[in-house]
């Protein structure tokens, strides 16, 4: 096992959420859930981050930001779409400015549905994402080895 799963740092971006999911994400960091148990730190900086948490659907304004943020994260990295909005666009899907879920712009590894997604499921989603992170890491070293 590589160390990346022991110290996943996250960056959290609010695409166009109603703020419900964001509050739940932050709730994960509170004493009740204490994400830091898993070595998870909220960095707020793509260059330090391994896990990208996106809440809310993607609109014209946030499209570029999500894309840039993702591009600036060094490999290996995973994306977790949190809440039904981030997964598919949710109730805002039909809005004139909404493009849809996060996967319209960047590849998403884990979808955490719910409106709002509960902290338990967010944590579950992140932990699942760690498995994918590990895989990507192995792939990366193999590629590097060749």
């Amino acid at each position: 096992m590589s160390y990346i799963t022991k110290s996943p740092w996250i960056i959290h971006y609010d695409g166009s959420s109603c703020n419900g999911c964001d509050i739940e994400v932050l709730a994960c960091l509170t004493p009740l859930y204490d994400l830091e148990r898993f070595g998870i730190v909220n960095t707020g900086n793509p260059k330090h981050a391994d896990v990208f948490l996106v809440t809310g659907g993607i609109n014209e304004q946030s499209r570029e930001v999500v894309k840039n943020t993702y591009d600036q994260m060094p490999d290996p990295k995973v994306v977790v779409a949190i809440g039904i909005c981030a997964t598919t666009g949710g109730v805002f899907r039909e809005c004139y400015n909404i493009m849809g879920g996060v996967d319209k712009v960047i590849p998403v590894d884990v979808y955490v549905p719910g409106c709002a997604a509960r902290p338990e499921s967010i944590i579950d989603g992140v932990v699942r994402a760690l498995g994918i992170l590990e895989e990507k890491r192995t792939k990366m070293t193999e590629k590097g080895g060749k």
């Binding site: 971006y13 900086n45 793509p46 260059k47 570029e64 930001v65 999500v66 840039n68 943020t69 591009d71 600036q72 060094p74």
Partner: peptide, 11 residues
């Protein structure tokens, strides 16, 4: 790998 500067997500 050369990454662009971080500008709060803006290009």
């Amino acid at each position: 790998k050369i990454l662009p500067h971080y500008m709060g997500g803006l290009s």
